[in-house]
Design a binder for these strands. Structure first.
Lengths: 242, 242
DNA sequence: GGAAATTTGTACGTATGTATG
DNA sequence: TCATACATACGTACAAATTTC
C-alpha cells in the first residue's frame, strides 16, 4: 500500500510525541506553519490532524490551535487493528494458542451475514489470544471455503489479515456490535475463568476492498481487557436527550 | 450550531435512503455529478461522503463508486450521542428514572481525571435509563461543583448535554474505555437483574470545546443492549499480527 | 473597548494519480 | 486502449473564534 503524504505528516507528529519532543498538552505549530515546514499543502496538514483528532490523539480549538491530548490513545475501538497489538498496548506480551480449524456447513446466521448458500461450506477457526500467557480473548472466525482454497491451521498462527492479503483479500472495514455476555462452560474453560464470568462480546462482519463480506468474527474479551474508546460528538445529532 | 454545506449533503443522502429512494446497495451518483446536482464543490461532497463512510453508512470503492451499505448504522459507538436516542435506535421507548444527586468530596480518581483538588466538591449523579420501562443502563456521572453552580436533581430529568449547554459548556468529545464487568448487588438491584450478571462498563471523561475535562461518567449496559460498531482499518497500522 | 494579528473552519477549484471495466 | 470514477494533493479565498496590543 503506497503511503500518502498525509500519512507522513501523521507519522511526523506521532514521532514528535513519542520522542518526547512534544509532550502532552504541547501546542502544535499552526497549520500554515506546519505546511511550510514540511513542504506540503495546508489541506494535507488538516487531513492529517483530522485523522489524529478522530483517533483521540490531538485536540483542536478554533482560533487557538491544536494540542497533543493529555492521554494519547494509540489505537481506539473505531480503528480496525491487530488484537495482538491491542494487547501489547494494554502493556502485555501477546501470543496465540489453541488454534482449531474445521470445515462445517454454514449456520443460518453465517449464510445471512456472509451472503452464501447452505451448499457452500465454511471454515470455523477458533483461537485464544494470551497476554503474558494468560488467556484474554477467545475468537471464533467464520470464512467461506471458496474464498480461501487450501488453508491450514498453521495459516492462523499469525496475522489472519496477512494471510488474507496473500490471497488478494484486503480487509478495509468491519460492521458489527458489542454487548456484555456471560462465559459459557466451553469458553470459560478456554479462557481459564469461572463460568458466567462477564465478557465483552464483539461480533463483526469483515469487508474487503470491494465491500464484500469475507468473514464473520466473534471476539470474547475477558475482564482484564480495556478497550480504548474515543468518541466525537456529531454536529448533526442535533436534539439529544441526555 | 450552524449547519455546514457538507452537513446538508449528508442529510440529503440520508433522506434519500430513509424515503427508500436509494435502497441498500444503491450506487450513489458520481462525486462530480452530485456536486453539480446540488450546486456545491466536489470537495464538499467528498467531505460528506467521508463522514458517512466513517459512520458505516456508505461504502466507497476506488474507481467504481460509492454505495449505500447493506446494513446502515444510524449511530455508532464512536459517535457521541444521546443514550435515549441509542435506546430508541435499538427499537425501544426510552425513559429516565431513579435520579439521585448528591454533593461529595472527590475521590482520588475524580481528582486525577477531572484535574481538580480535594477541596473542590463534586456532584455525583445517578440515573437509570429504561427501554420499554425495563432498566437497561445505569449511569454514574461526576461533575465539579464549581462548573455547575446551582443545579438540582430536576436538571437531570432530560438531556445533560442541553443542561451543560445552557451553562456555556459544550461537550465535543470523550475519552475512555469499555470493559466487561459483573453487576454488584447495588447495580443489580437498580437494573432489576441477578447479581453478577454480565454488564458492559463504559467509562468516559467528557471534554468541552476548550479541551477541558468537565465530567467523568460510568455507564453500565445490560445484556439487552447492543452497541453498533463500525471500524475502519487504518492504513498506517501497518504490521498487524492477526 | 476596539482594532489587528493569528489560527482554525469552511468552501471551492484544479491538476494529477490510480483502479476498474 | 480508453473512458469513467474515485483518491490524493495543492492552492486560494473568506468566515469565525481567540488572543494580543
Amino acid at each position: 500500500m503506497k503511503k500518502r503524504v498525509s500519512d507522513s505528516v501523521v507519522e511526523y507528529i506521532r514521532n514528535k510525541v513519542e520522542t518526547g519532543e512534544w509532550p502532552a498538552g504541547q501546542k502544535l505549530p499552526s497549520e500554515p506553519g506546519l505546511a511550510a515546514q514540511l513542504g506540503v499543502g495546508r489541506s494535507t496538514v488538516r487531513e492529517a490532524i483530522q485523522e489524529l483528532v478522530y483517533a483521540g490523539y490531538v485536540n483542536r480549538i478554533h482560533g487557538v490551535g491544536s494540542f497533543i491530548c493529555e492521554k494519547t490513545i494509540n489505537y481506539g475501538m473505531n480503528e480496525y487493528m491487530s488484537l495482538t497489538a491491542l494487547i501489547q498496548q494494554n502493556g502485555y506480551t501477546a501470543n496465540i494458542r489453541h488454534i482449531k480449524l474445521e470445515i462445517t456447513r454454514p449456520r443460518k446466521k453465517h449464510m445471512e451475514l456472509l451472503g452464501i448458500s447452505e451448499l457452500e461450506p465454511v471454515y470455523e477457526v477458533q483461537r485464544v489470544f494470551t497476554a503474558d500467557d494468560k488467556p484474554i480473548v477467545f475468537e471464533l472466525a467464520v470464512y467461506p471455503c471458496n474464498l480461501l482454497p487450501d488453508v491450514h491451521a498453521e495459516d492462523f498462527e499469525a496475522s489472519s489479515f496477512k494471510m488474507l492479503e496473500k490471497r488478494g483479500i484486503n480487509i478495509r472495514h468491519s460492521n458489527g456490535w458489542v454487548s456484555p455476555k456471560a462465559a459459557d462452560s466451553e469458553i470459560a474453560k478456554l479462557l481459564e475463568i469461572p463460568q458466567n464470568s462477564p465478557l465483552l462480546l464483539m461480533e463483526s462482519v469483515l469487508c474487503d476492498q470491494n465491500g464484500r463480506a469475507v468473514a464473520y468474527v466473534r471476539d470474547y474479551f475477558t475482564e482484564t481487557f480495556k478497550f480504548p474508546l474515543h468518541r466525537i460528538r456529531n454536529s448533526s445529532s442535533g436534539d439529544s436527550l441526555d
